[in-house]
Structure formats: structure tokens, C-alpha cells
Amino acid sequence: MIQFEHVSKRYGERLALDDVSWRMNEGEAVCVLGHSAAGKTTLLRLITHETQPTSGTIAIGTFRGGRLSRAHRALLRRTMGVIYEDFRLLSDRSVFENVALAVRIGGCFSESDVIPRSLRALEEVGLHGKQAALPGELSYGERQRCAIARAIVNRPAVILADEPTGALEPKSAADVLALLQRIHREGAAVLLGTTRPEVADAFGGRRLILEEGRLREASPAHSFMPPATAPAPEGA
């Protein structure tokens, strides 16, 4: 599903990823653990084609290698759901409109399906009662759940989560991880990037460790999902 072959990425003098090769299969759960600036975000940005590798090949589904055209890049991004640490919700739109926007962008469903699908996604993340609220009126945990609803509403085959609990307090972080585990159990592949080992422990799945842009596998390729426990807050 996702395959990196000898991928390196250089930003000027700095080598963000160094000869990284790995593979993620359909329905798999993978956690990329690494300290800040280890290359996690670069890895996720390479998957979404927000940046291009300096060398090496990346294959995502049927999209294989090289620079994609803008139209193909958009098409690729529509096949996955991405969750960001800073949520990236549109502040002038309600929770419902943020989720509905993703359905419309996806373009897979008719206009009459937009409302029921969006409401169902919000129900799944426990935000059914807050559909009319603006993101600014929600807690950080609720905002992240809204971002997750937006990521899953089109039922993508893969979910990318870049530090999804980074801005959350322990209880909300546990809720978000539990939600991601449930999404994985329902069949989606989930790739989670985090700096926090306790988040990686709580999330489970195959663990990859990124250190100074180099990747090493910390656990064998399998997918297990222990029940989510509340990770300790950062710095605790």
C-alpha cells in the first residue's frame, strides 16, 4: 500500500530522511516514533506528496514514483485521511461544514449523501450534539475529534495522523487514540507519527523508530491493538 525504497530528503544542508526503506500493508497499523525533527513529518509529507524526495522511490497504492501532476496529487490525497496536530479546521465554518467539506472534496458521494454521511462521522467521534458549533467554541480534544471525523468521513483506506495527541490533555489524548484504534479495527490502515513513547505504547501496532532521519524497525511487522490507556502528559 505504501512503500519507500531508499528514500532520502534533504532540506538545504540538513538531511531530514536518510536512505529510508519501509513498507506498510493494507489494514496495517504503524506507529512512527521519533524525537522532534527526526523526520516524521517529512515522512508523512512525502506520502501526501506535499514534498518530493531528493532521491529514492515512493509508491502509494497505484501512484508510483516521480512528481505527480496537481490533478493526480489531489486524487492521491483524496484516497487518504490526514489528521494534523494543529487540526487544520476552517475557523469560519461549523463543525458540520468542516466535515461536509471533505465529503464534497472527495466527490464520491451525491449531494444528498453529504448531510447523512457527515452527521454519521460526527456521531462516530461523539460530536453529534456540537455540529453547529464553530471550531473556536470547542475544546482541543473536540477539535481533534472533529478533524478525525473529517479524515474518516470518506472511508479512506489509510489514515495518516501527525502527532494527533500533541495538543491534547491525557483524557482527550486517550479518547483520540481509542478512536484511531477503532478506525483501524474497522479496516483502515493507520500510520501515526509521534514524539511520545507512551502514545506509541498506547496506540500499539508495528513500531518504526526514526532517529536523525534514519529508520529502524522496533517491533516485527504485525498489528496488535491493546486497549488504549491514557498516556501521561508531555513532560510528565
Binding site: T48, E50, R70, A71, A74, L75, L76, R77, R78, T79, V82, R88, L89, L90, S91, D92, L101, A102, R104, I105, G106, G107, R150
Partner: peptide, 16 residues
């Protein structure tokens, strides 16, 4: 800009 960038990241086409 924020809206356009977010929509681009969500996979919106230029036409959209």
C-alpha cells in the same frame, strides 16, 4: 490562504 491550503491538503482539485 489557510482555507485554500487546507482544501489542497484534503485533496481538493484546482477546479473545486
Amino acid at each position: 490562504r489557510t482555507q485554500v491550503e487546507t482544501m489542497t491538503k484534503l485533496g481538493a482539485s484546482d477546479h473545486f
